[in-house]
Deep mutational scan, measured.
Amino acid sequence: NRLGIIYEIQGMKAVVLTSEGEFLIIRRRKDMKVGQQVSFENEDIYNV
């Protein structure tokens, strides 16, 4: 599992900021809110 803070939500995608200072786009889940810490898997990351 990886951890990140939700920075922005766009439709079915969420932008998270990881503890390494990396911004990633992941698959959104219904319970996500901006500012929330979430765990996610590598499979949830969109390749940009």
Rank of each mutant, 00 (worst) to 15 (best):
G11H: 04
V38M: 04
G21A: 02
L3R: 09
Y46G: 08
Q10V: 13
Y46I: 13
S19F: 10
R27E: 09
G4M: 02
L24G: 01
V38A: 06
M32D: 05
T18Q: 01
A14K: 00
G21Y: 06
V15Y: 15
T18V: 06
R27H: 09
D44L: 05
M12D: 15
Q37S: 10
E20A: 13
N1H: 11
G21H: 03
I6A: 01
L3P: 03
I5W: 10
N1G: 10
Y46N: 05
R2F: 13
L17C: 05
R29H: 12
I26C: 01
K30N: 14
N47M: 09
K33H: 11
A14D: 00
E20V: 06
M32S: 01
I6N: 00
D44Q: 05
L24D: 01
V48G: 09
N1R: 04
N42K: 06
S39L: 06
Q36M: 14
I45A: 06
I6C: 08
I6K: 00
G21I: 02
K33S: 13
N1C: 12
I6S: 00
R2M: 12
G4P: 02
I6M: 02
D31N: 07
I25L: 14
E8G: 12
N47T: 13
I45R: 02
R28C: 15
V34P: 04
I5T: 07
F40T: 04
E22P: 02
I25R: 06
I9Y: 03
A14L: 06
R29P: 08
V34Y: 05
F40R: 02
I45P: 03
E41T: 14
N42G: 04
Y7R: 12
G21M: 03
I45Y: 05
V48C: 15
F40W: 09
T18I: 03
E20T: 14
G35R: 03
E20D: 11
V16E: 00
K33T: 12
I25P: 05
Q36G: 04
G21C: 12
M12I: 09
M12V: 11
L17P: 00
E20S: 11
N47A: 05
G21Q: 03
Y7F: 06
L3Y: 15
K30F: 14
D44S: 03
V16D: 00
Y7A: 13
L17Q: 09
I45S: 04
S39A: 10
L3F: 13
R28Y: 15
M12S: 10
K13C: 14
I6V: 15
M32Q: 05
F23W: 15
F40L: 08
I6L: 04
I25V: 11
E22D: 07
Q36R: 06
F23I: 11
V15T: 13
E20Q: 08
E20N: 11
M12N: 12
F40E: 02
I9E: 01
N42C: 12
V16Q: 00
N42D: 11
F40Q: 01
R27W: 15
Y46A: 09
F40Y: 12
D31P: 07
I6Q: 00
F40H: 01
G35E: 02
G21T: 01
F23M: 14
V15N: 04
I6Y: 00
V34W: 05
K13S: 09
V15G: 04
L17R: 11
L24H: 05
E22L: 12
K30I: 12
M32T: 05
V34S: 02
Q10S: 15
V15W: 11
N1I: 15
D31F: 13
V15R: 07
Q37V: 14
R2K: 10
K30E: 15
Q10K: 14
I9T: 04
I9G: 01
Y7M: 13
I25K: 05
R2V: 05
L24P: 00
L17Y: 07
L17N: 02
E43P: 04
I45C: 10
N47G: 10
E8T: 09
G11V: 05
S39Q: 09
N42E: 15
V16C: 03
N42S: 14
V48P: 14
V16P: 00
L17M: 14
G35Q: 03
K30L: 10
G21S: 07
Q10R: 13
